[in-house]
Each structure stands twice: as C-alpha cells, then as structure tokens.
Amino acid sequence: MDFSVIINELPLYFEGLLLTAQLVPFSLILGFLAAIPVAIMRLSRNPLVNYPAFAFTYFFRGTPLLVQLFLLYAGVGQLDGYSELTKEFDFLKGAYFFALLAFFLNTTAYTAEIFRGAMAETPFGEIEAAKACGMSKWMILRRITIPSALRRALPAYSNEVIFMLHGSALASTITLVDLTGAARIVQSRYYAPFEAFITAGVFYFVLTFLLVWAFRLVEKHFNKHLNRREETIIEVVT
C-alpha cells in the first residue's frame, strides 16, 4: 500500500469532510425538530392525526435510504417540466438539496419512532402528579412528557445520529463530493481502493468518536437528577 498519493489529495478529503459536516448536522437538526410533532401525532388516538404520521414513518423506515435518495434525485428529475423549473430555482440544479431532503425525511421518521417509544413510557405517576397540580394537556406535554421522554431517548437517539453520519456516505452516489465521494475520486484516479477508503474510514472513525463523546457529556448533563450525589445540589438550586 502506498499512502503517499493520499497526502496530495488531502485537500479533497477536507473538502469532502466540509460537506459531510454540513449535510449531517443540518438534516439532524431539522429532523429532530420535525420528529417531535410527528411523535405526538403517532400517539394520538384520533386516526386522522395518527395515520398520516404512521404512513410517513412506515414509508421512510420501510425503504432503504439509497432508494429514497434515488427516488428524490433521479426520479423527480425525470418529471415533465423539471428542466424548466431548474432555470427558475437554482437549488433544484444541484444534488445538495435532494440529499438534504432525503436525509432529513429519513432521520425524521426514525427519530419520531424513538421519541414516540420514549413518550409512551412516561411513568404514569409523573402525569398524575402534573394533573393534580392542575396542568392542562398541553402543559403536561410541554413540561413533563417531552422533556422526560427526550432524556430517556438520548442513548437510542445517539445511535440514530451515528447511523445518519454513516448513511450520509450515500450522498456520493448523486455526484456530491462528501468524504466517500472524495474517496471514490481518489480511488478512480490512482486505482488505489485500499488507501482511498481507509483514509475515508479514518475520518468517519474520528467523527464517530467525537459524537459518542459529545453524547456522553449531554447525557451526563441532562440525567444529573438521576445521580445520587448531585441530587442535593439540585435541590439547593431550585
């Protein structure tokens, strides 16, 4: 193996890293925000509210991300009049918008199911206590159900974040030069698949490590109240 070719191509990898580091957080933030209402809809007993949310999560969890990406990018691109639209709306020209859209919808569906599970598990005592205090339905949701569900969902959600990072490699199939896209260019230029993909792998490895570490800090912060020694401190503050 000859890693000297990689040194020359490091700028390309950093360019790829920049795109990955944009696509993944953007789709995750949007997905997180959209997942909360979808999860609430999923918990509703009213079929008019529940079924659309169910159909959405069922579709996006039931098909591969690659299929969704191809449907949105290649499929939509073949619709009549699409090429006329690209003249008016510049963002339709690039692949970026479609990658972001596919990732966003996909992560929304998975995250919504994680949150739904966590909300359904809210201890009944907490809700009963809130009711006894005279809180309305929405206030209970806002003050009790959602915050405690998000805390409980953290470990499962950190998995989803890592899956999203690794799933973003699929952006390279629709002309985007993300980390994997950079590796594909390098391998086709030097016919050195090992060197090209090992380098991309190292980048993903470091990113994953950073994410795991960040989630540990976040979990520590939000689950403080579950830690006995710090309990007294919290009581003093409130």
Binding site: A74, G77, Q78, Y82, S83, L85, T86, L92, K93, T175
Partner: peptide
C-alpha cells in the same frame, strides 16, 4: 448514463 439523466433534468 447517469450523466445523460442529469443533462435531461437540466442539472
């Protein structure tokens, strides 16, 4: 083939 698809899509 993918390049042709994007050409016809105006991308």
């Amino acid at each position: 083939d993918e390049a042709y698809l994007d050409m016809t899509a105006g991308r």
